[in-house]
Design a binder for these strands. Structure first.
Length: 539
DNA sequence: ATGGTAGATAGC
DNA sequence: GAATGCTATCTACCAT
C-alpha cells in the first residue's frame, strides 16, 4: 500500500485509512453505489423489483475493504464517531442491494471479491426499498473507483477533475470518502430518529461477517446421496405434482454440494438491509430456504455439527403474535402471554364459545391457522385456501367468516389496530403513508400505493427482526468465551456451533440472551425462546 | 444470445 | 369494503 499524502499531522481521514489497512481482508471490500451509470446493464435500472440504486461491488485487489456510500455534502459525524470508534471493526457504511448487483457483475464476467455484508444509512432514510429518491446522486468517488477497476469504461481525466485528486491508492480514496459520506447522513438520521436503527445495524455487522465466514458444517456426501435419490425417483415418477417438486428440488438444491461446499462447510451470504422489513435477505445459496423435513426428509440432517461440537438450534415461540400484541397494542393478547397461556386455545375458545379448558386438539389446530392467518389481514376466502393447504382443514366460507369474527372478538386490540390501518388506507389514496417498527425503521407508501396488508405486516416483521438482530449481536459476544459461534440465522431461528462439553451451558445461554435481547425491543410481552442441542439441523 | 416478466415453490 | 406479509430461485415464455 503506497503511503501517500502523509502530512506531519495526519488528518482524520488519513488516520481512518490507516486503521482500515490494518483490518483482516475479509472484513472489508468496496461497495460502490451506482444508480444512473450509463454502462450498467439495463435490468439494474429498469426492473421494478430491483428498483433501487444498483450497487456495484468491485474487487479492490490487496485492499482492506471499505464500504462506500454515495451521498450529498458534508455534515456532522459526531454521533457516529463514538459508535464506530468503539468497534474493533471498521466503520461499515454500505450499499443496499449489492447482492443483486454481484449477480449482474458475474454475468458480465467480473468476479468481485465478496464483501461481508451491508449497511446503509441511505437505505434507512429511503424508508423502504420501493423508493430511493434520497439515494440518487452518483458520487464522483464511485466514478473514480469504477475507473480504477474498469479502465476504459469511464474517463479517468474526468474523474480526476471532479475529485481534484489523482487517486492511485484506492484504499485512501475509499477512506477519504467514508467520513464525508457518513457526515452527510448523520444529521438526517438524527432528524429522522433513525439513529437507533443505524446503531443496531452497525453493531450487527461483525456478527454477520463472522457468521458468513464460518459457514455451516455439511455432510456433503450425504447431501449428494439425497440428490441422487431424487434423480432416481425422477426417472420413474409419474405423478405430475411429484415431478414438479422433484425438479424444483433438483434444480434448486442439486448443485449445492458442488457449488457451495468447501472443506466440509457451506457458506452463504447474508444481507441485513436488503429488505423492506429489516429481515435478512440470504442468497448464493439461500440457506434460509433449505427444505424442511416435511418437504424433503433428510436434507436438514445433512447440516451438522462437526466432530467434537454440537449445534444449538434456537427459535422464538410465536414471535409475531407477541410482537403484534405489543405493537397493536392488544391488552387481551398481552395478558394471554403474561399468564403463560396458549393464544391458540384462547382463539379456539372464542370460536366455540366454550372455556379454554374444553378445547380439543382439532379446535386448537384450527385456531392456530386462524391466529396466523388473520393476524395480518387475510380475508375469509383466502383463509379457506390457507387452512386447507397449510393445516389440512376444510372449511366452507361461512365457517371461515365465523372464524375471522371469532379472532377479532378474542383480541379486540388487534381488531382496533386493523381498523386504524384501514383508515390509513383511505388517506393513502392521496397522500404518502409511513409505518414504522419499534426502533423506528420506516416503510413509506407513496400516495396511491398503500398496501393494507404490508402496513400491518412490515412493522411486526420488522420489529421482530430488530429484536433478533439485537440477539445476534449479544450472541456473537456471549458465545465467544465458550468457544461457540453462530453459523446461521433464519428470521427467528439461530444456529450456533459449540464445543460438545459446553453444549448445555451454551443452550441455556442462547435461550437467555435471545429472550433478553428481544425483550429490550418488545418489553410489554414476555418473550420465550426455545433452544435444543443437536448433532444436525434435523435433530 | 441476452434481458426481462410471471408464476410456481422453497423458507420464515 | 376487502386485502396475510417478507424473501430467493427456478422454469417457461416473450422481447430485443
Amino acid at each position: 500500500m503506497p503511503a501517500q499524502r502523509r502530512l506531519s499531522q495526519p488528518t482524520e481521514v488519513q488516520t481512518l485509512a490507516a486503521e482500515l489497512r490494518q483490518l483482516r481482508p475479509p472484513a472489508i471490500a468496496l461497495f460502490l453505489a451506482l444508480d444512473d451509470a450509463p454502462d450498467l446493464p439495463v435490468n439494474a435500472r429498469t426492473d421494478p423489483h430491483r428498483a433501487r440504486p444498483a450497487a456495484l461491488a468491485l474487487a479492490a485487489p490487496g485492499l482492506p475493504a471499505v464500504h462506500l456510500l454515495q451521498g450529498p455534502a458534508l455534515a456532522d459525524l459526531s454521533p457516529f464517531q463514538a459508535l464506530l470508534g468503539a468497534h474493533t471493526a471498521p466503520p461499515y457504511v454500505v450499499v443496499h442491494d449489492a447482492h443483486r448487483t454481484l449477480g449482474v457483475l458475474a454475468r458480465r464476467g467480473l468476479t468481485p471479491r465478496r464483501v461481508g455484508c451491508t449497511l446503509t444509512a441511505a437505505t434507512l432514510l429511503a424508508e423502504g426499498a420501493d423508493d430511493r429518491r434520497d439515494d440518487r446522486p452518483l458520487s464522483a468517488l464511485v466514478r473514480a473507483e469504477l475507473a480504477h477497476d474498469l479502465p476504459g469504461e469511464i474517463d479517468r481525466g474526468l474523474i480526476r477533475s471532479e475529485l481534484g485528486v489523482n487517486h492511485q491508492d484506492a484504499a485512501a480514496a475509499a477512506a477519504d470518502a467514508l467520513l464525508p459520506l457518513m457526515r452527510a447522513y448523520a444529521p438526517r438520521l438524527r432528524e429522522r430518529h433513525l439513529v437507533r436503527v443505524f446503531e443496531l445495524e452497525c453493531e450487527l455487522v461483525p456478527a454477520v461477517l463472522d457468521m458468513e465466514a464460518t459457514g455451516l458444517a455439511v455432510d456433503a456426501p450425504a447431501f449428494a446421496r439425497i440428490v441422487e435419490s431424487w434423480r432416481r425417483e425422477r426417472l420413474t415418477a409419474e405423478e405430475p405434482a411429484r415431478i414438479t417438486r422433484l425438479d424444483k428440488l433438483l434444480t434448486t438444491y442439486g448443485n449445492w454440494p458442488r457449488d457451495y461446499v468447501s472443506a466440509g462447510r457451506i457458506r452463504t451470504h447474508l444481507y441485513p438491509l436488503a429488505t423492506d422489513s429489516g429481515r435478512f435477505a440470504c442468497a448464493d445459496p439461500n440457506l434460509q430456504q433449505v427444505p424442511s423435513e416435511h418437504t424433503a426428509p433428510g436434507v436438514r440432517a445433512c447440516f451438522v455439527a462437526p466432530h467434537g461440537a454440537r449445534l444449538i438450534i434456537a427459535d422464538y415461540a410465536q414471535i409475531e403474535l407477541r410482537v403484534a400484541a405489543h405493537l397493536a397494542p392488544c391488552p387481551v393478547l398481552r395478558q394471554v402471554f403474561r399468564d403463560r397461556r396458549d393464544p391458540h386455545r384462547t382463539t379456539a375458545a372464542a370460536l366455540t364459545r366454550a372455556p379454554e379448558s374444553a378445547v380439543t386438539d382439532h379446535q386448537r389446530k384450527l385456531a392456530k391457522a386462524v391466529n396466523f392467518g388473520f393476524l395480518f389481514g387475510m380475508g375469509a376466502r383466502r383463509f379457506r385456501e390457507y387452512a386447507a393447504t397449510s393445516y389440512g382443514l376444510d372449511l366452507d366460507l361461512p365457517a371461515a367468516e365465523r372464524a375471522r369474527e371469532a379472532f377479532f372478538r378474542a383480541f379486540p386490540g388487534i381488531a382496533a389496530w386493523h381498523r386504524r390501518i384501514g383508515d390509513l388506507s383511505r388517506r393513502g389514496e392521496r397522500e404518502d403513508i409511513t409505518v414504522q417498527t419499534a426502533l423506528g425503521r420506516r416503510k413509506r407508501f407513496p400516495a396511491g400505493a398503500f398496501a393494507f396488508n404490508a402496513a400491518l405486516n412490515i412493522p411486526v416483521q420488522g420489529t421482530a427482526a430488530e429484536g433478533f438482530k439485537r440477539a445476534m449481536i449479544d450472541l456473537h459476544r456471549g458465545l465467544a468465551p465458550l468457544g461457540g459461534r453462530g453459523v446461521l440465522c433464519v428470521h427467528d431461528e439461530y444456529l450456533a456451533e459449540v464445543p460438545e462439553d459446553r453444549a448445555e451451558e451454551a443452550r441455556q445461554l442462547v435461550t437467555r440472551i435471545m429472550e433478553e435481547a428481544m425483550a429490550t425491543i418488545v418489553p410489554s410481552v414476555p418473550i420465550v425462546a426455545e433452544a435444543r442441542i443437536a448433532t444436525s439441523w434435523a435433530g
